[in-house]
């Protein structure tokens, strides 16, 4: 006798495919926000499955801070080529050069917040009406309140206290001129689910996620990679460690953990025994208790 239920990964996959198809059906010009991180890679993989045997119907949009891991950019370009997809790039450096934003000052300066302007400019200039993201509700307390279809006003802002109710799987993607929506197909996935899915589907990911030797500096309770953008303090010392990254962002703020997990299986084992959240290594989230909520209100990913 057949079993007529799905296991949790199949159910999450089916839900995400449903969301991606709703996006395609309800919008004129949707794109996938592609960071090169594992979550946006999984979303891209799901889009490939959702529209098979058609080609993936979304462009990939990358907000390039200019402070990248070189591995991320190569991975992005290879994937775009393999999919035959269109790549749109919003450049933070260009936003700075045009005077749209000003570089932060001081030793903890990052380009994290500057991305918001570049992202919103790219959405506007490409006439994007829905930006699909890899955000998950388990990541952070403000994200726990996020909808699958999330409305942004003409300033790109999120109003968490006035969100559209979202019942059953009836998604309301209506918007007025100048507004857009964000869609989050893997809202209900946890970090563990993402890793189990990557393992099950054998999805290619950047080598940065896998334990490797790298020059790093101990800062803010995490191993920050050495790069041309890093300004060393007097007491800081560059050392070589075997590390891997749990999330990938701007190279100046993404900390790694010491690890021997050099295969997907070992990573899944390691993640299942982790006692720290993955964003604990991201200094952008440590600025204040509502750091994520504040950035999301302004239009962040």
């Amino acid at each position: 006798m057949s079993k007529y239920y799905l296991n949790y990964l199949d159910e999450l996959e089916s839900e995400a495919i449903y969301v991606l198809r709703e996006v395609w059906a309800q919008f004129q010009n949707p794109v996938i926000l592609f960071s090169g991180g594992k979550d946006s890679i999984v979303v891209t993989h799901l889009a490939r499955k959702a529209f098979y045997p058609s080609k993936i119907p979304f462009s990939l949009m990358h907000v390039d801070t200019g402070h990248n891991f070189p591995e991320t950019i190569k991975f992005r370009d290879d994937l775009v080529k393999e999919l035959g997809a269109n790549l749109l790039v919003g450049s933070v450096q260009e936003s700075i050069d045009q005077g749209r934003v000003a570089e932060e000052k001081g030793k903890n300066a990052t380009r994290n917040a500057l991305q918001i302007t570049t992202l919103l400019d790219a959405i506007e200039s490409n006439k994007v009406d829905c930006a699909i993201g890899g955000g998950r509700r388990d990541e952070e307390k403000a994200r726990a309140k996020e909808r699958f279809f999330s409305h942004r006003d003409e300033f790109g802002q999120w109003d968490p206290k006035n969100q559209r109710p979202e019942l059953w799987n009836l998604f309301n993607g209506k918007y007025f001129q100048g507004e857009h929506l964000r869609a989050f197909p893997i809202s209900n996935w946890t970090e563990m689910d993402v890793w189990n899915y990557i393992l099950r589907e054998n999805i290619a990911i950047p080598s940065l996620y896998i334990a490797h030797e790298r020059e790093v500096v101990w800062r803010g309770g995490t191993w920050i990679p050495n790069s041309e953008f890093l300004v060393l303090e007097d007491h800081e010392e560059v050392v070589t460690k075997k590390i891997r990254f749990r999330t990938l962002g701007d190279i100046t703020i993404t900390g790694g953990i010491e690890s021997d997990a050099d295969t997907l299986e070992k990573i899944v084992d390691e993640v299942s025994t982790m006692r720290q959240t993955e964003r604990g290594n991201r200094s952008d989230d440590k600025r204040s208790e509502s750091a994520m909520e504040d950035r999301k209100r302004q239009g962040y990913f």
Binding site: R137, D138, K141, A142, A144, K145, P160, K161, Q163, S187, N188, E289, S290, E293
Partner: peptide
């Protein structure tokens, strides 16, 4: 969850965990 909820000590919107 949200700042207002922390300040008021109440749940306003649905949060998923």
């Amino acid at each position: 969850g949200l700042r207002d909820e922390r300040e008021q000590g109440i749940t306003i919107d649905v949060a998923y965990r």
